[in-house]
Amino acid sequence: MSDIIPFPQNNEKLIKDIKTFFEQEKYEQMYDAFMNYEREFELTTELALLKCEMLLRMEQYLELREEAIVLLKQGYDAYDKLMVYYMTSLHGLGQYFECVEVFNQIIDQVKDHNIRMQLFPIKEDAQMQLNENKKRYIARMKQFPDLKVDQQLYLIFDLMHEGQFGFTDTFAELLSTHPFHTNVQTIILEYLKKGQYNKEVKFTKYEAEFTVQPDQLPGLEYAVFTQQVIPNVMERFENNYGDQLRSEIAQMLQNFSIALYPLEIEKVASIKIWIDSFYVYLEKMLNLSFSPTENINDKVNNWIEKVQKNIK
């Protein structure tokens, strides 16, 4: 049976309805008309831009951002105009750092003067918002050592999310002079890496001395423990016991990854020994059967015990 071909007048009627609703500023009805249209037809460039304009006027910035991303990936012949909508959505969502970053990446490619004049004010206001936010962060940073652990972590994550990397020297000094919780130390290092801090920092973690250059660190996501130990331990455990405890075990191993960073674990023992030791550690912790001939490596066990004392 052949596919049903929609009548051309249905297409034309929907387009007419969309444009009429737009002229009448009936954006809710216009939104519904777009939903009906896209069930059967692909958007033309004209309609794609009209849909973005509708979402902008409705102040639906999250949907506008997602729509602009989809349209850009689909290669519509309106790149510059779509970038205006994309940057406007970032600004509307308060993603000022991303807004400025996108502007810096694309502005040299935008030749249309009118488009450039739409992009510059968006970027400049986003930059002003970042500057205003920085003033607030300065006051909060003065209190950093006295904050609770969760407050310290929240502030660092907030700074990274906002693209506020003007405190690298402050955090480097704090890290080297204050005995922060190990998780706070790790996230400070993440901040310094993202802020491209290229000076050596010395600090103590689990009574071990570390000297690192943050911009040369792999980053927590790419650390050997995260990339190799966790997936291999998880796979072996699931092969033997199923995946019922998957989320709990994954979280526990992630906690160890955060706590151990930036330890170069291969200088302590081989990757295989770390995997074997953590697998046995899991079995013992969960009171499961395990091979009596397998034992946790002493050096690895020493680190496990140190971390256990600090994980809350």
Rank of each mutant, 00 (worst) to 15 (best):
S2F: 14
I4P: 07
I4G: 08
N11W: 13
N11T: 08
E12D: 12
I15R: 10
K16E: 14
D17E: 15
T20M: 05
F22T: 14
E23G: 14
K26I: 02
K26V: 06
Q29V: 04
M30G: 06
M30P: 08
N36D: 14
Y37C: 03
E38V: 14
E38R: 03
R39A: 13
T44G: 04
T44I: 03
E46M: 06
E46K: 05
L47M: 12
L49D: 00
M58N: 09
M58T: 05
M58C: 05
Y61L: 06
R65C: 03
R65W: 03
I69V: 11
I69S: 08
V70C: 04
V70L: 05
L71N: 02
D77P: 00
D77S: 11
Y79K: 08
Y85C: 00
M87P: 00
M87F: 10
T88E: 10
L90R: 00
G94K: 05
G94C: 03
G94Y: 09
F97A: 13
E98H: 02
V100I: 15
E101I: 01
E101R: 01
V102A: 10
N104W: 04
Q105I: 03
Q105M: 06
I106Y: 05
I107W: 09
D108Y: 06
Q109R: 11
K111N: 13
D112M: 04
Q118F: 01
I122V: 15
Q129I: 13
N133S: 12
N133T: 08
Y137I: 14
R140H: 09
Q143R: 12
F144C: 09
P145W: 15
K148T: 12
Q151C: 10
Q151R: 11
Q151V: 06
Q151F: 13
F157A: 10
G163C: 09
G166T: 03
F167D: 05
T168N: 14
T177N: 15
H178W: 12
N183F: 15
V184S: 01
Q185P: 08
I188R: 14
E190D: 12
L192P: 01
E200Q: 11
K205L: 12
K205C: 15
E207S: 04
F210P: 06
F210S: 10
V212C: 01
P218V: 01
L220W: 00
A223P: 00
A223F: 05
F225L: 11
V229M: 12
I230W: 03
I230T: 08
N232A: 11
N232E: 11
M234D: 02
E235P: 06
E235Q: 14
E235F: 11
R236T: 09
E238V: 09
Y241I: 06
G242N: 05
S247W: 02
I249E: 14
Q251H: 09
L253T: 01
F256E: 02
A259D: 07
A259H: 07
L260V: 13
L260M: 15
I265T: 01
S270Y: 13
I275A: 02
D276Y: 07
F278N: 04
Y281N: 03
L282S: 07
E283T: 15
M285S: 15
L286S: 00
L288P: 12
P292F: 12
N297T: 08
D298A: 00
D298V: 01
K299S: 09
V300K: 14
V300Y: 10
N301D: 11
N301F: 07
N302R: 13
E305D: 07
V307M: 05
Q308E: 15
K309N: 07
K309H: 08
N310P: 00
